[in-house]
Design a protein around this nucleic acid. Sequence first.
DNA 1: CAAGTTTTGAGGTGCGTGCCTCAAAATTCG
DNA 2: CGAATTTTGAGGCACGCACCTCAAAACTTG
Lengths: 343, 343
Amino acid sequence: MRPTARDLAEAAGVSLATVDRVLNERPNVSPKAARSVAEAIERIGFMRNPAAVALARNKTYRFRFVLPTSGDQYLAELIARAGEATEALRADSTDVEAVQIAMSDPHHVAKYLTAIDHDTVDGVAVMAPESPQVRDAMLRLVERGVRVVQFLSGQERLESADYVGVDNFAAGATAGKITGRFLCERPGKIMVVAETMMALDSIQRRLGFDSIINAQFPHLESLPSLETYGDEKRAELIIRRTLEHNPDTVAVYVLSSEARIPLTAVWNTQGARALTVVAHERTPFSEQALMDERIDAVIAQDPGHAVRSALRILRARSDHREPLASQERIRIEVVLKENLQFD
Amino acid sequence: MRPTARDLAEAAGVSLATVDRVLNERPNVSPKAARSVAEAIERIGFMRNPAAVALARNKTYRFRFVLPTSGDQYLAELIARAGEATEALRADSTDVEAVQIAMSDPHHVAKYLTAIDHDTVDGVAVMAPESPQVRDAMLRLVERGVRVVQFLSGQERLESADYVGVDNFAAGATAGKITGRFLCERPGKIMVVAETMMALDSIQRRLGFDSIINAQFPHLESLPSLETYGDEKRAELIIRRTLEHNPDTVAVYVLSSEARIPLTAVWNTQGARALTVVAHERTPFSEQALMDERIDAVIAQDPGHAVRSALRILRARSDHREPLASQERIRIEVVLKENLQFD
DNA sequence: CAAGTTTTGAGGTGCGTGCCTCAAAATTCG
DNA sequence: CGAATTTTGAGGCACGCACCTCAAAACTTG
């Protein structure tokens, strides 16, 4: 039989109460007792029964996703996955909620985060653009004992928080490689479109993309990033102008998560030109466009996996456990029409 | 507070004993009582506390991976991941073991499976080539109450078992698309190498591959499949001969999980020819070859994910729960040098 | 209606741990 | 050395459910 705490007490030559003090890091334990318990744990291979712990603690975990208000299909996907997780974890005494707040003003975001209390929420996964205020607010959250995950966002990585998301430089490099190889030594220009280049993730993707294009495809030139600011009219305008000024454009790379607005603008204005198109994230829009062969490849990070990963990490941290790094790495997926599978 | 079984009994107007009978499907429950409990469950939103269930049952789950003896690096990877899972699940009263048996003789495999007993093992994940004997043995296992997962193998899908692995037709199609597009309208032949074409997964990959090549890249011709039978000498011989007879070979597609032997043979004999190379599965060999740009792309299914998925499914089935399909779909990954990330 | 059968309820124990109290023992300090 | 402090042990209750027993109640059948 698997050893219990009682067996451990016996093996360590101490009482159950002392074992309890050691296991739960309560005060008033002599170094000697602590050592003999630690030694006995190794010797008999004791492990706490997680089910019994969960039952005895009878604690409800409360986690929160803090997401932007503005967004499109990928955001909707994230919210849907968070909803799924809420359902799936209900049985495990885990409350998951997703809130949306305006991300335009860093002070507002910081204020929201600062208002989060340790006895309201055990952990938050924050998807917000880089800003000193927000970074600061997150650090203070951690100090107050709230677990924090930097979620799919282009923030400077914090030491004291976990990150869930892909390496955006590598994601951009992957997009660059696919674009370059799919273009088949055809020279020309690549139009690069973003919602905004203020976000760190956009910058990193761009750097990764350019690093590959410059090093491996010198016959290609990537144009300066266009910023749509999520505005259809503006997108249409700047994209039309860019295509007109660069008749030798052979490819489009959309490095934001939301490709619908920029690509719709491209297709409205490109005329008969056949462009190689690479975008980010699987959404109903990008899936359909892959099917129709209007997008050649999508570089994606699975939102369902991201949501579950963030929750597993928050749960592990709340239990003072180390998350399993190997399981939580989000892969950079390359999605073509051929491996576009539905459930 | 979250409703307990006691609350449920009260809400349903029955005793705790009757609630217990309904929840655990014990006999001697009148249809009327069953209905009123079911109704009360809906009404008050009752869910069993999984921790309490696990504790009360105090059951140890025993799952087993049945893997081939013969294999190379991908097999080693699978075994390593199974070992990791064993560690990770030890705390959860779940014993995971991986055994290796010779797969060459279907009768031997069938005999092994038939010897598995419900009170020794709760579930098995079987990676074995297609054969009527094995299929039959698996069916009988299910009948005896042992949960079965068809694991990463080219077997005909069973109704009564779960499958973990990618859609091999789509995986082959993805390989075909990458090969075709990376070749850039260059005409020529594609050498297709397999360990054996006896396995259903190889056949499906081949079909998927050809479907794309034929439809989208008519200037390419895929040669008949070469079978190495895992033999280095034989591989070297048939590959050399094929390359000599087909000087216009422009690409190599290795559709088995283990690419080391065939690709080493290719590189030993190809001379100065630059070939586009696509293979399956991430292994130390294929990773290194991607880094060195000797392989252009790898089509992969994550072995760690596969192992964990199989175990989650076996666990869910053992608890008479439905696994979450969305989480268990294994993605067809496209791995390039650029998105070849290490932990 | 009586005898048999099925259904129900009351109640208890145990799973392994967390958390609490209180008293006894050991240690430290002046 | 005595007093104050720290450490330890014994014991018990709770968490929510599974599983068991036994007797009472409700039905069924001849």
